[in-house]
Amino acid sequence: MMKINVTTRVARRIIPVLAALWLLASCGAPQPPQLEGATLLQPDRRLAEFSLVDHHGEAFTQDALKGHWSLAFFGYTHCPDVCPNALGMLKRVQSLLEARGEPLPRVLFVSVDPERDTPQTLAAYVGYFHPSFVGITGQDAQLQRLTRQLGILYGRAPGGEGDGYLVDHSAAIILFNPEGHYQALFNVPHDPQRIARDFLAIRDWYEASR
């Protein structure tokens, strides 16, 4: 009986203290979202200048990322397996979000093979998946200015037909927030349901943090 009384008294003192601590911790900024597979960058990463071209031949710089969420995949059109897989997967992410009535993030396909992928090549390629998808290419030096900031790797490897070549490339998907900053990374394996849920969690957290 005595023992229970002591425990209750201690608990009566500790619980309000814990509650106050929890309130203090949580009223500053919203808790970071619970994510299923994405890696959140906290704080987000501001990008240094880069200058690329979209599939309409228009300039694509860090300013072009502002005003909407974007999901970017890095690949090339001579890649018939991984790249169509990823773009088809991103199309499913968009369909899932569309079915929930959510505004859609933009999908960017950044070519890591600027020697062979012209804006015209990319226009036909990305348009096949969805008319809203944007293909991006440019000079190798400018491309590296972007990829190095994102930790995206790419490089030529022997193979392909004739005197052609293959390009090894990171398979991660990068999420940019509407300020045009690097906000999160989706590593392989990619599941459209998980990516859609993580995207919504990150977006809601981002909006609540403003």
Partner: peptide
């Protein structure tokens, strides 16, 4: 097809590569 290659996609350390 002019030729058909047998390839394997390997994804290691987050990097996808095709090998003959």
């Amino acid at each position: 097809f002019a030729h058909v290659m047998m390839h394997r996609t390997e994804t290691r350390d987050g990097v996808a590569r095709m090998r003959h």
